[in-house]
Simulated scan of single mutants.
Amino acid sequence: MAKNETTMVNRKSDIISAAIAVFAEIGYYRATTAQVAERAQISQPYIFKFFATKEALLLTALEVSWTRVVDSFRKVVESAVPEQLESGLIEAYEEILATYQNEVLLQMQAQTIREASIQEAMRNGYGEVRQMVLEAFRAAGIPNAEERTMLFLARGLLCNISVALAMPELKEF
């Protein structure tokens, strides 16, 4: 990759990271691309070199956050022994919560946004995670795999709320 291309990839990544932070901190609707640009230390017009709209930037930020969850879970699924699968997935998600809290908060906010494209991105993200966990539970021979998957996802959402409200007692189980 040429130096200029590398710089552009890095700048795009910086913009996405800045957007995740700004959207998580003040909300998608209140956030402006000017605030994202300021956080990324670039000019506002430079954002539009990569993203046609603020919504396109949000969709990319959501894609990054869901990819992180999916990739993290995939590593566990590919390496865990059946007896440690669920605990491995829990540990992986706790690591995401600790390290990428803004991405989790972004996903939580996106759940309430009614735009069709954002709802679709959220359905796709949850659907991919659900399917991966369900298939892994079935392959591991976990009894009642469907119910255990639902409980796993429900606990994950409760963990999200715990982080958002600074109530660690919600995730103690």
Rank of each mutant, 00 (worst) to 15 (best):
Y93L: 06
D71L: 03
I161W: 14
R30Q: 15
A24S: 13
Y93V: 05
A52S: 12
R30L: 14
I142F: 07
F152W: 07
P143F: 06
V36I: 15
E146Q: 09
A24D: 06
A121K: 10
Q41L: 11
T99W: 00
I20D: 07
Y28W: 08
T112V: 10
S17I: 02
E135C: 05
L170M: 15
A21N: 15
Y29V: 13
A98M: 02
A34M: 04
G88E: 11
L58M: 11
L58K: 09
E147K: 10
E91I: 02
E95D: 11
V163Y: 03
E25R: 12
K54D: 08
A166H: 12
D14E: 15
M108T: 14
S79R: 06
R123M: 11
M8P: 00
A110P: 01
R114D: 13
Y28R: 05
V70P: 10
E83Y: 03
S17M: 03
T53Y: 06
V69F: 12
S13W: 06
E169G: 15
A98F: 02
Q109M: 09
L59K: 10
Q35W: 04
M150L: 13
A40G: 03
A164Q: 03
R39V: 03
E103H: 03
Y29W: 08
F23M: 04
R123A: 13
A34H: 01
V163E: 07
K3Y: 00
A145C: 00
D14Q: 14
T53M: 04
Q131G: 10
S17H: 06
